[in-house]
Design a protein around this nucleic acid. Sequence first.
DNA 1: GCCGTTACTTTGCGCCGCAAAGCATAGGCG
DNA 2: CGCCTATGCTTTGCGGCGCAAAGTAACGGC
Lengths: 129, 129
Amino acid sequence: MTASDRDDGRFSYEGLDRIIHERARLSVLTSLVAHPKGLPFPDLKRLCGLTDGNLSRHLAVLSEADFVTLEKRFAQNRPQTVCRLTASGRQRFIGYLGVLEQVVRDAAEAAASGPESGRRGLDPATKPA
Amino acid sequence: MTASDRDDGRFSYEGLDRIIHERARLSVLTSLVAHPKGLPFPDLKRLCGLTDGNLSRHLAVLSEADFVTLEKRFAQNRPQTVCRLTASGRQRFIGYLGVLEQVVRDAAEAAASGPESGRRGLDPATKPA
DNA sequence: GCCGTTACTTTGCGCCGCAAAGCATAGGCG
DNA sequence: CGCCTATGCTTTGCGGCGCAAAGTAACGGC
């Protein structure tokens, strides 16, 4: 063994789903989890600070992957697309959040423990000959 | 005003720097913040669960953006690239972590508050005529 | 002197984020 | 009724990037 086998993948964070781990989509999902009844396209657009085209594309991706449902209806004689989180989407998003939390914990802990102190001598960079 | 102006960009998370917000690079930065003395290429590769090519590419990007320094030296008659976080890189990474934490807080709070209860009647989806 | 191993770098491809352009309908206004 | 602007999205185009496979180089047995 290579003396660091036990740490293999320690920071690989495989739970960071590519579909979710993207600024715009993270915004969308967070918005939707905060609005369980669903959100109309324009509101979502404003909350996330996205352009029409952008939001449209990301919603298509999220819908394709069954994270959200898109209900196209009419309100006040205007088309209105209402976006809602699916149960499975909610589940997977929560799982992702757990990983994110782990990242923050790992990093915060490390950042606090050794800005100037370092880790005295336990470091692989100084492995013996 | 559109009755939701105060919430514009509420979930836009502009602090999510594209350079950092990427699984592989997030892994690298977290590894490095946990090892302030620096890490040799192979160790970093194992910690992050990355292939050689991948790690090389991401290190080039991080180095380009002045997040890390790459010291190429020789140890045990073999080439050894040691990666270290720069002060500014550390600073920016910590800033990013703050935003991540905000994301987790926003989402966790929302997810806890309304899985089944919803937000009775305050929802933009049910705005009056 | 070949052969495998270690330590990277380079190349190539496919997908994706993003903005600009497009399309369709509604609602004033003369 | 015809025009014009605003709203609500969708589609298109392209530049960039993540990723894996191939390439380079140097050392260490045998």
